[in-house]
Design a protein around this nucleic acid. Structure first.
Length: 892
DNA sequence: GATCCGACAGCTG
DNA sequence: CAGCTGTCGGATC
């Protein structure tokens, strides 16, 4: 159940007559417990409560009925209950049917309200449904309630009017929803006389909405016409205001309301729309037209703090500094005002308009403050009495029609709210109606549209700021159409673009728009575009012809107030034309002024590390492990191996130890079937193996990967059986935790088959291990390789093959080998501790730490004659060596 | 033939 | 649920 559904279920309880015995089961149902759980609760088998009439569901809630007027006493009893202590319910709830007293145990927050109001506080009860507390909901439940009502209305309308669900009519349907929302908002905030729209429509719509369509159509048509031009419309529409502003200008139609849809419309009208928050409301409401998004409910909307991370350094911080500097000088303040009037904000992936709404609100707030200050300084009332920041300075592109319509509406609502605040301060507010022009939202594909046409380039005295959070999609999750969009944008400029993220297209177009103009841009992106292969593929084509990174936020975890957050790590990159202004690099909440920001978002030289097939410093060949592509059928757990061998001892010659990252890092044990081609028939004669091979063949044959399908012909073998050791192998897990102070690396015997989750040095000397286990190497890998979210990802081509080393003498190599063996020996002395345990930053044994320290000191003295002071110094040296090597190669 | 990536995925506490 | 940490195999070079 999503929050909307939980709200509706709790509200239904609030409306129904109270029954002390029935309430806890209804509450359990409303908070997402399975039917079976509830019936077990009813017959008492799982009820753990120790209070009379109480019901306790472990980790969810503990309820007890209260005597009239005694809810607080009962809540106290719940707090003191032994069973509360053992079963750890999230929520305690006591009620007498009149009032409710409840507590959220983790925070100690309490709730006291009338029983029939519990629907309004449903956010408080979400923890009883196993959901985290949902701050946005508790602060502003109206947004979720409105979303729920509108979603029901939308569904009911589509059901009653199947033709309105077609692509051809979707835009009209979306417009209808926006018009209705506008009217409901307008009549609640005083744009229309209170309740005017619903009063008129509902009194002419018939009892069950038989005439609702005609009434709504008449009302909409009237609002598009000045009052003196409404001949031909029903007389009752004369009362309605002239709205216009484009909202009612085009294609007025309405679907038929059946009794169900009509009831939902009435429910929606009953909400207090004054309270809605356009920041969040816009995002939530997007889910109305898209049932898939309802479960996610705002998963991808950008939170206000994250928007501020973008627009702060992009333009607000500079503006604030300017205002601050001119604070005592009316002329300076007027200059700031006139600059603000020329500032345009353009979000080329605007969704429901979050960035535009927040930008608009922030600019209007500053304008109001400046006007107040000017009035104060000049002691007169002769200040400009109206805002010079037009809503038409806000531009957006959005693919989804419903979201685009929402963005327009959200901006309209923000404009109204900003004007109302202006009115509070200056005692006068302009006439709201008829609406003036609206924000410039274009519904279309940002990767196909010419941005210069959507948002004309800045003229004299103007600045354009591109800001937004475009979609992230890796190469495995794009549609054919999206791939075609990428080709359209990037082919011809980028040599290889297919493996970089979709969001790169926006970054690229933003750079092109910005270049050579009075413009700047800043976009949220997945951190992968500033790591690994993407860096060399993308950034050399952005940071050219005068474009530089003016500010950036390094990786941060995506978070907003939605109940489910997207699992992704983001960066923000601000682009501008080369400038002497400061550059700012933010890590978390800390910002630093730096001299250059490179494509890795580091304060360092503007350098792109490219993948290499072999080490450019002459290190041994490291290669990718063996990839099964077997749906698990060539892999055996310890138990499976034992079962197999006890039944078919002759299979033992086909079974080998199999190690991936997990096996190296966490000491897990797995086996694989490793059958030489000439023994394929013999192996297939063993029924258990034959069954496994058949499953492999079926799985591969059904694959959509071109390389996998032919491998169905040799199911006894890995799809890619690359190599194996003659005497020993050094394994480097390809993914491992970012918390460790050193990269995991392990030396194994020839009996082990390394999986593709390791990079492998076969039969290589021990000094290689000393390099990989060094701090220098970790710093290099962390910088130039990709990441999995924020964890280290080891690549042979980009990490090992580019790793700069000085020329080692034979003697030095022997010293390093000895050092590597000391590290291994120290690890063995802690047997059976795993690498994960040994390298836990909190619990790393002192002797192992010491062995690594000695290894680092030894290796580093071979670079510069002494240990490095810190990682910055390490990286500087490595970059220098890399650059020198590249120069040498270019010369050769 | 070889390998980088995942608006993640699976496990644990 | 929320934090932690690396599977698996497609797609691309």
């Amino acid at each position: 159940m999503n929050p909307t559904e939980i709200f509706e279920a709790i509200e239904a309880i609030a409306r129904a007559p109270f029954d002390a015995g029935e309430f806890p089961f209804a509450f359990a149902e409303a908070t997402d417990n399975a039917k079976a759980t509830i019936s077990k609760l009813r017959n008492g088998t799982t009820n753990k409560s120790d209070l009379p009439g109480g019901v306790l569901v472990a980790r969810k809630f503990h309820y007890a009925p209260a005597l009239r007027g005694m809810t607080d006493v009962t809540l106290d009893a719940l707090r003191g209950s032994k069973r509360t202590a053992t079963a750890k319910p999230a929520i305690l709830i006591a009620t007498d049917g009149e009032t409710v007293a409840a507590e959220h145990r983790a925070s100690g927050d309490t709730l006291h309200c009338r029983f029939d109001e519990i629907g309004d506080h449903f956010g408080f009860f979400l923890p009883a449904a196993g959901k985290e507390r949902y701050r946005a909901v508790e602060e502003n439940p109206i947004d979720v309630k409105a979303t729920g009502k509108l979603a029901r209305l939308y569904d009911a309308l589509v059901k009653a009017n199947p033709d309105w669900a077609t692509d051809a009519r979707r835009h009209e349907m979306n417009q209808l929803m926006m018009r209705l929302i506008f009217c409901l908002f307008a009549e609640d905030v005083g744009i229309f006389p209170y309740n005017q729209f619903s009063r008129l429509v509902f009194s002419h719509a018939g009892n069950k909405g038989e005439e609702a369509r005609e009434a709504i159509l008449a009302a909409f048509r009237a609002m598009n016409l000045p009052k003196d031009r409404r001949a031909g419309l029903p007389a009752w529409t004369a009362e309605l205001e002239y709205v216009n502003g484009g909202l009612f200008a085009s294609g007025i139609d309405a679907p038929v309301f059946d009794p169900v849809a009509f009831r939902y419309l009435k429910d929606a009208a009953a909400l207090n729309w004054r309270e809605i928050n356009p920041d969040i409301f816009g995002s939530m409401i997007q889910s109305v037209a898209d049932p898939k998004q309802r479960a996610e409910l705002g998963m991808h909307y950008t939170s206000v703090p994250n928007i501020m991370k973008v627009i702060g350094p992009l333009f607000l911080d500079d503006l604030d500094a300017e205002i601050e500097k001119a604070w005592d000088r009316p002329n300076g303040l007027r200059r700031a005002l006139s600059r603000m009037a020329g500032m345009r904000v353009f979000d080329p992936a605007c969704g429901s308009g979050n960035f535009l709404v927040v930008s608009y609100r922030e600019l209007r707030a500053r304008e109001t403050r400046i006007l107040q200050r000017i009035a104060e300084l000049e002691g007169s009332t002769q200040v400009q009495m109206w805002s010079a920041i037009p809503i038409t300075n806000f531009y957006g592109i959005e693919l989804d029609d419903f979201a685009a319509e929402t963005a327009k509406l959200a901006l309209f609502i923000s404009e109204y709210q900003a004007n109302a605040r202006f009115g509070e301060v200056f005692g006068q507010m302009p006439a709201t109606l008829p609406l003036k022009e609206a924000a410039r939202i274009t519904c279309g594909n940002a990767l196909r549209l010419n941005w210069d046409i959507v948002c004309p380039p800045p003229g004299e005295g103007e600045q354009v700021f591109i800001a937004g959070n475009p979609p992230f999609l890796g190469d495995n999750s794009r549609t054919d159409e999206q791939n075609a969009d990428m080709e359209h944008v990037l082919a011809g400029t980028l040599d290889s673009y297919k493996r970089i993220d979709f969001v790169s297209c926006w970054m690229f177009k933003a750079a092109n728009y910005t270049r050579g103009r009075s413009a700047r841009s800043a976009l949220v992106a997945t951190n992968s575009i500033c790591q690994g292969q993407s860096v060399g593929a993308l950034w050399p084509h952005i940071l050219v012809d005068g474009i530089e990174i003016g500010f950036a936020h390094t990786s941060f975890k995506w978070r907003n107030n939605a109940s489910a957050n997207a699992a992704v790590i983001c960066v923000i990159v601000g682009l501008r034309n080369e400038s002497r202004e400061r550059k700012r690099l933010f890590s978390g909440d800390l910002g630093a002024v730096v001299s250059t920001i490179n494509a890795y978002l580091l304060d360092g030289p503007n350098l792109f590390i490219h993948a290499e097939a072999r080490s450019i410093f002459g290190l041994p060949y490291m290669e990718y492990g063996n990839k099964p592509t077997d749906d698990g059928n060539l892999i055996l757990s310890e138990v499976e191996k034992d079962d197999l061998l006890s039944e078919y001892p002759e299979a033992s010659r086909f079974v080998k130890k199999f190690m991936g990252s997990d096996e190296v890092v966490n000491g897990k044990v797995r086996y694989c079937l490793w059958v030489p081609d000439q023994d394929a028939d013999e192996a297939a004669a063993i029924p258990a193996l034959r069954a496994r091979f058949d499953r492999v063949a079926a799985f591969r044959a059904a694959s959509k990967a071109a390389q996998t399908r032919p491998a169905a012909a040799f199911p006894h073998r890995f799809r890619q059986a690359q190599n194996w050791a003659r005497s020993h192998a050094i394994l480097v897990p390809s993914v491992s935790s970012e918390r460790r102070p050193y990269l995991p690396v392990e030396r194994v015997g020839a009996d082990v088959i390394p999986s593709n989750l390791n990079q492998v040095l076969y039969d290589a000397p021990d000094w290689c291990l000393a390099l990989i286990a060094s701090r220098l190497h970790l710093v290099w890998i962390a910088t130039v390789c990709g990441k999995l979210k924020s964890d280290f990802r080891y690549s042979n081509t980009m990490g090992w093959n580019t790793f700069p080393v000085p020329h080692f003498t034979q003697d030095q190599l022997e010293q390093l080998s000895a050092s590597a063996r000391r590290i291994m020996k120290t690890r063995w002395s802690h047997y059976p501790a795993t690498i994960a345990e040994l390298y836990d930053p909190e619990r790393m044994p002192d002797d192992l730490r010491q062995a690594h320290k000695e290894n680092d000191d030894l290796l580093e003295s071979m670079y510069i004659g002494r240990p490095f002071r810190n990682d910055t110094e390490r990286l500087e040296k490595l970059f220098k060596l890399y650059a020198a090597r590249m120069k040498q190669e270019a010369a050769a």
